[in-house]
């Protein structure tokens, strides 16, 4: 397995065609397809933010949706209840997620392995339950709706292009993080915290930084999603969304930057199209997941990497 993309440079060779391709699809496929593509893009960001924790930081979070949900409610609540302007909501969404991740992360990084997973689960369930139970403020399970026009009232294709721009910028930022000193520290601590500490790193501090970055980006995804739907529901912070993101990361490929991207694309498209024809799309996902874990633990990214390697060798 060769997890480390050895060069720090952005692989524009891959990025530019991907972004242009997405733009072309948005422009040509019509409004319905634009909605699906936007959904995919938001999930790409959400899964990639979790990927920073799992693939690089060695932290398996079972509560990542909390920050997605905080991103959504950070936008919806001030708009619906305080009548704040839209731009304030757009800023407050990710900010709420960042603060939530800071508070929860400070607790969670004290724990390791399964205990870490359980504590992130407990904390996200606290967020979910508060959103669900405090119906005087959050509307409970009826959520917050009608506080803004879905997609800012834009044509779905235009909103898709906007989301594409924001998600691309966030992924570039994430790439920079991964390839920077703090990224190296996150990977080092994720792999061997004792070795890292004996080299002078403060493992918990490094993990907390990773946790907050991941939470903030999940918050951006949540805010984009709330704008996309024009609503916010407690489920956005629930265990269902967390599991979705984990499944995306594993299918896409652990220990790979692209894992979150591949996983989100495959998962969301399957969910959209398979569920159109058969109701049993979760069964299909479950079987794919089984196959990935048993046959190609490095996921789709790992499989593609091996394929590319083999092809490269043949042509060389």
């Amino acid at each position: 397995m060769r997890p480390a993309e050895s060069s720090g440079a952005v692989q524009w060779r891959l990025v530019v065609p991907a972004v242009l391709g997405a733009l072309a699809l948005l422009a040509t496929l019509g409004q319905g397809a634009a909605l699906v593509i936007t959904d995919v893009l938001i999930m790409v960001l959400f899964a990639s933010s979790l990927n920073l924790l799992t693939s690089y930081g060695g932290m398996v979070s079972f509560g990542h949706a909390a920050y997605f949900g905080l991103g959504a409610y950070g936008l919806a609540l001030p708009l619906a209840k305080l009548g704040l302007p839209l731009w304030a909501g757009l800023a407050l969404g990710p900010l709420a997620a960042a603060l939530g991740a800071l508070a929860i992360g400070a607790l969670c990084v004290r724990l390791t392995h399964i205990y870490f997973a359980m504590l992130t689960l407990a904390c996200s369930e606290i967020v979910f339950t508060i959103l669900f139970q405090a119906y005087d403020y959050t509307g409970g399970d009826t959520g917050i709706t009608k506080f803004m026009a879905p997609r800012l009232g834009l044509d779905p294709r235009l909103y898709g292009a906007l989301v594409l721009a924001i998600v691309s910028a966030c992924l570039l930022l994430l790439w920079k993080v991964v390839r920077s000193p703090i990224g190296l520290a996150i990977r080092a601590v994720g792999e061997e915290p004792h070795r890292a500490a004996a080299l002078g790193y403060s493992p918990r501090m490094v993990q907390l930084v990773a946790f907050v970055i991941a939470g903030t980006l999940a918050g951006v995804a949540g805010t984009l999603f709330a704008v996309y739907q024009g609503n916010a529901f407690p489920d956005y912070a629930g265990i269902g969304f967390t599991i979705d993101a984990l499944v995306m990361v594993v299918i896409g490929g652990l220990h790979s930057f692209a894992g979150g991207v591949y996983g989100a694309v495959i998962y969301t498209l399957l969910k959209t199209f398979v569920s159109r024809y058969v109701t049993e799309w979760e069964l299909v996902i479950g079987l794919i997941l089984l196959a990935v874990v048993l046959v190609s633990p490095a996921g789709v990214a790992g499989g593609l990497g091996r394929l590319g390697h083999a092809l490269g060798r043949r042509s060389a």
Binding site: K176, S180, P181, A185, L199, G200
Partner: peptide, 20 residues
């Protein structure tokens, strides 16, 4: 080795790749 140098020499929280 880079991780070792960073842990000691500080700059571990830098975001710029220049330090690396």
């Amino acid at each position: 080795m880079l991780a070792a140098l960073l842990g000691n020499g500080g700059g571990a929280f830098a975001l710029s790749a220049r330090r690396l």
